[in-house]
Nucleic acid binder design. Structure first.
Length: 587
RNA sequence: GCCCACGUAGCUCAGGCGGUAGAGCAUCUCCUUGGUAAGGAGAAGGUCCCCGGUUCGAAUCCGGGCGUGGGCUCCA
């Protein structure tokens, strides 16, 4: 979390500009709301924010006035002045201003007797800088929205009002950014999901419980077939296990204790039976592992399933298909020896990279989430952790992949690699993950018979190579703006007859394509061709095959491709080419 | 869960300072047979999110819910 000490701009000019914009915002706010207390105000991706305690909350309607005050201050050409105060002076200054949050930061974060502050006219802020020279350097900013944010990121602390804004060196860049936001709006999976009838979320079913409509379900089926076939080819064993289990299973795994807040309450029956909707698949897969005595010859054993998980996410965190309460994870649990760990991690990363390549996930980055030394929230001994962490990092390095390390972000049972992608609005989220686990093997007393006949404990790797189907789908909708590659598109071809008299031929062409499992819609409505083309284009169908008198004569179709080019080809040639495109999963 | 905003026909939205609502698209019917992004006409369609309160009267005002969106916290 950004706090004094790490929210300062690094010297990157754009960050400096945005950080100065945050100060300008706070200066305007303190003029308009003299009782407002200010918290922190860093530069963030694409802009900045500042947190305030207004006493009583403000709303977005108030932003216009604040922004125009900012403009006024910007035009006034007020310099950003750096000063170093003694601790005593600083405390006096902020006490006079009733700035309790700043006083708290001075007490907690400032070491020594020197306190760095910046003055902008009457406004004084605890800050290391650097800043732009004058408010006049801030030429292109806009306030975007207000939000609640807990003081110092802590739910138990008071909630402040955060004002978000964006700031750019020139008005032209600001305009381009606002345009980008507008375009992101058009790609939004929630909007396109509705427009293209891919999925629906209905109050009567419940929040976070999406319904996959026929076209969405078609895309999901294609993705699942692709995933399962590829995993089978790579030595995974696909299983099917139930969405529920006795609560005791999750007591043994530790989820009932450590993961309780995300779990649905158990179903308790008259005879005392307690069944629990599973929040994760691992316990079921462990039971699969234990259906027989395993030998070292069986390892690595890779048990996979596109398994449904149920997590009672807090209502405020739900978001379209990206964050739901019931989702299908492309999950697998690899049981292996410590010696095999590296290769298995590499294999999992390689698979995730392959899925990404085929699905079109071009922009991503890796994060290695490790334990930190401060907290005692980690289970297991440090040597194991160090080994596992080393294996993860070495795997990435040996594959030439760059990564960042996030200390303290590991799962309680082991370190992990997260595969970070971002949506149309550049909001980042985890799609796939590779996690090393020493806890479950211990809790379930997993073992295998080693070469020397002794019983040994396997290591477990949890991995979701393509993530959850729901989240992946939300990503793909935005990635392609609904214009899915042919192999994924629910309607691969629309056959459009020019007039009713060609309907029969259109049906014949459609039937021909369908024989090869091409998904075809034959548009025989009594509408003009224009209309049929428009409707198909609106649905972003990759091929529109127009048929009229000349096509009937030559047994051909006139193809209107999504890219734009048009061409008359024989039905046979079209069929061959689209079959190849689908088989190769071309983008 | 918390903060802010929003919730009117299947969809996108008007309207309404209190007198029970309107458009376009979609749907249905009829007419139209038109070669590459919306042919025409008509019909049908709404407990204005839900529950309370104020009022002669509430979609409109007030209160409480529920849901959605953007954030916070959390996370696949």
């Amino acid at each position: 979390m950004a706090e004094y000490g790490d929210h300062e701009s690094s010297g990157n000019p754009l960050e400096t500009l945005r950080h100065s914009s945050a100060h300008l915002l706070a200066a305007a706010v303190t003029e308009l709301y003299p009782d407002a207390k200010y918290g922190i105000g860093p530069a963030v991706q694409d802009g900045f924010y500042y947190d305030f305690d207004f006493g009583k909350p403000i709303s977005e309607a108030d932003l216009a006035a604040i922004e125009s005050r900012m403009r006024k201050l910007a035009q006034a050409d007020i310099p950003f002045v750096h000063e170093t105060l003694s601790r005593r002076q600083a405390v006096d200054e902020f006490t006079n201003r009733h700035q309790d949050y700043k006083l708290e930061l001075i007490a907690d974060k400032v070491e020594g007797d020197e306190v760095s502050v910046y003055r902008t006219g009457d406004f004084l802020d605890l800050c290391r800088g650097p800043h732009v020279r004058s408010t006049k350097d801030l030429k292109a900013f806009k306030l975007l929205r207000v939000a609640g944010a807990y003081w110092r990121g802590d739910e138990k602390k008071p909630q402040l009002t955060r004002i978000y804004g964006t700031s750019w060196p020139t008005p032209k860049e600001l305009e381009a950014y606002l345009k980008f936001l507008e375009e992101a709006e058009l790609r939004d999976h929630k909007k396109l999901g509705k427009d293209l009838k891919l999925f629906a979320i209905d109050d009567r079913v419940g929040p976070g419980l999406p319904l996959w409509l026929p076209d969405g379900a078609t895309i999901r089926r294609e993705i699942e077939r692709f995933i399962v076939d590829e995993e089978l080819a790579r030595g995974y064993l696909h299983v099917r296990t139930p969405d529920v289990a006795r609560l005791d299973l999750f007591r043994q795994s530790g989820h009932a204790q450590l993961y309780k807040e995300y779990m649905y309450p158990p179903m308790i029956f008259e005879d005392g039976e307690e069944l629990e909707l599973r929040p994760v698949n691992c316990p079921h897969h462990i039971v699969v592992y234990q259906t027989e005595l395993r030998s070292y010859r069986d390892l690595p054993l890779r048990i996979a399933e596109i398994g449904n998980n149920w997590r009672y996410e807090r209502s405020g965190t739900l978001a379209g298909m990206n964050r739901v309460r019931s989702f299908a994870l492309n999950d697998a649990h690899i049981f292996c020896t410590p010696d095999q760990l590296m290769d298995e991690v590499r294999g999992a990363i390689d698979l995730a990279l392959y899925f990404s390549k085929v699905l079109g996930i071009d922009e991503f980055r890796f994060e290695v989430a490790t334990r930190d030394n401060v907290k005692d929230k980690w289970l297991g001994d440090e040597v194991q952790w160090a080994e596992a962490q080393g294996a993860l990092e070495e795997a990435l390095e040996s594959m030439g992949q760059l990564y960042t390390v996030k200390a303290g972000e590991a799962a309680f049972y082991g370190p992990k690699i997260d595969f970070q992608v971002h949506d149309a609005h550049r909001r980042e989220f985890t799609n796939s993950t590779v996690q090393v686990d020493f806890q479950m093997p211990q809790r379930f007393d997993l073992e295998y018979v080693a070469e020397d006949g002794t019983r040994k404990r396997p290591v477990m790797v949890h991995r979701g190579a393509a993530g959850a189907m729901e989240r992946l789908f939300s990503y793909l909708i935005e990635r392609y703006a609904g214009a899915f590659p042919t192999w994924l598109h629910p309607t691969q071809v629309v056959v459009a007859s020019v007039r009713d008299e060609f309907n029969e031929y259109a049906q014949k062409v459609g039937a021909e394509l369908r024989k090869s499992r091409v998904r075809v819609l034959v548009d025989t409505r009594s509408e003009r061709l224009d209309r049929k083309i428009r409707d198909a284009k609106t649905k972003k169908v990759p091929y529109i095959a127009v048929v009229g008198s000349s096509e009937v004569e030559t047994n051909s179709v006139n193809l209107n491709r999504r890219g734009g080019e048009r061409e008359t080809v024989s039905v046979e040639a079209f069929l061959e080419s689209i079959k190849a495109e689908i088989a190769e999963r071309r983008r």
